[in-house]
């Protein structure tokens, strides 16, 4: 499976995290898998778990979907387990370009964090809820859903969502002086600023 090599996305971690299998059951399945391997049979852990009756069809589907979902989320900007600077710079780019005030971004972040916590684990629902909630925050109707989309941390991990959005807010604050220039600020200003910031960051490293 594609996520097997990624720590935290492995089937053995997911089945325990989702509460389908306990530690003892997992140990038993791993032993069976090892025995099969010695006999020359390369059985997948999820098949072994199912054959042992530890996982039903519905649970199997949930595990696979969950793994795929987390893989996808890891690859969209600011996604879970993705700490490359360009991701959170992009995450900052959207609110910075749309509203440009750190306070506005923080307000949006707070609303979205609450929304994420309320409907954790159900991506599109909380994004829509984020939108709904964001319309209640004056001055941020466009920024909040855009920030939600750009950060994409809709996998039910409020702490990581909050971290990403706080980074985005901090970067927005860093980019805020651009607004002090006596010129009309466009996304082009932020794109150039983001490119320069990333290049500088890499050079410093």
């Amino acid at each position: 499976m594609p996520g097997d090599a990624v720590e935290g996305l492995r089937i053995r971690d997911l089945v325990v995290e989702l509460g389908f299998v306990d530690r003892a059951g997992l140990e038993q399945a791993l032993e069976v898998q090892e025995e099969l391997h010695e006999q020359g049979v390369n059985a997948h852990l999820i098949d072994v778990l199912q054959d042992l009756g530890l996982l039903d069809d519905d649970q199997r589907d949930q595990v696979v979907i969950n793994q795929e979902m987390r893989l996808v989320l890891a690859e969209i900007p600011g996604g879970r387990r993705d700490h490359r600077p360009e991701r959170w710079v992009t995450a900052a780019l959207v609110p910075a370009a749309l509203i440009g005030t750190p306070l506005g971004v923080l307000a949006a972040a707070a609303v979205l964090a609450i929304g994420a916590w309320l409907v954790r684990g159900q991506t599109w629902r909380w994004v829509a809820l984020g939108w709904l909630a964001a319309t209640a925050v004056p001055g941020t109707p466009a920024a909040a859903p855009a920030a939600a989309g750009a950060t994409g941390t809709a996998d039910g991990a409020p702490r990581e969502l909050a971290t990403t959005l706080l980074r985005a807010a901090a970067l927005t604050a860093a980019l805020a002086p651009v607004r002090l220039l006596p010129v009309a600020v466009t996304p082009m200003h932020y794109l150039v600023a983001a490119a320069l910031a990333l290049a500088l960051l890499r050079r410093l490293r």
């Binding site: 010129v183 009309a184 200003h189 150039v192």
Partner: peptide, 8 residues
């Protein structure tokens, strides 16, 4: 082009 946008 860039300066045209920055300093119109």
């Amino acid at each position: 082009a860039v300066l045209m946008v920055v300093l119109p």
